[in-house]
Every structure is written in structure tokens, then in C-alpha cells.
């Protein structure tokens, strides 16, 4: 499922991914394990969130941007 809706906001079904990143999970595999989601969906979701500037990625390690931090419920 796309993690960013057409209006550019994270979809309601994916707040857990941002929360997991805030709690220190930095890899797609760690987020998938924490969220009990298939790895492919987390990779796809993190890509969407990165493109929408909620998340930044460096060498496979993910972190929240300022906008992402503000969007965590």
C-alpha cells in the first residue's frame, strides 16, 4: 500500500513505520520485524516516505526528517 496519499501526507495505515523509526529502528528489516509487515512492503513504504521527505536514507539506514518527526502521531 502506498505510504503517502495523493495530497502528500502519510496514509493513516502507516503511522507505525514512522513511529518505529522514531524509536530507533533504522533498517527496513528492523521496521518490518517491529511492525510485523512483509519486508517488501516496508521497503516500498520507506521509499515513498523518502520521496515525500518524511524520511531520509543513507547506505540503507533510515531516519526521520523534520517533517517526518512532526508527522508521528
Amino acid at each position: 500500500m502506498p505510504c503517502v496519499s495523493p495530497d502528500g501526507k502519510p496514509t493513516e495505515s502507516r503511522p507505525g513505520m514512522l513511529r518505529d523509526l522514531r524509536e530507533g529502528k533504522t533498517s527496513a528489516a528492523a521496521v518490518a520485524a517491529a511492525a510485523d509487515m512483509p519486508l517488501y512492503r516496508v521497503r516500498s513504504g520507506l521509499r515513498d516516505l523518502t520521496e515525500a521527505d518524511y524520511v531520509s536514507e543513507s547506505d540503507g539506514s533510515y531516519s526521520l526528517t523534520e517533517q517526518g518527526t512532526g508527522a508521528v502521531p
Partner: peptide, 8 residues
């Protein structure tokens, strides 16, 4: 389920 790559 959104845009997917094989590498995902």
C-alpha cells in the same frame, strides 16, 4: 499495494 520493485 503501491509501486513495487523486484529488489523490494
Amino acid at each position: 499495494h503501491g509501486v513495487l520493485k523486484l529488489s523490494d
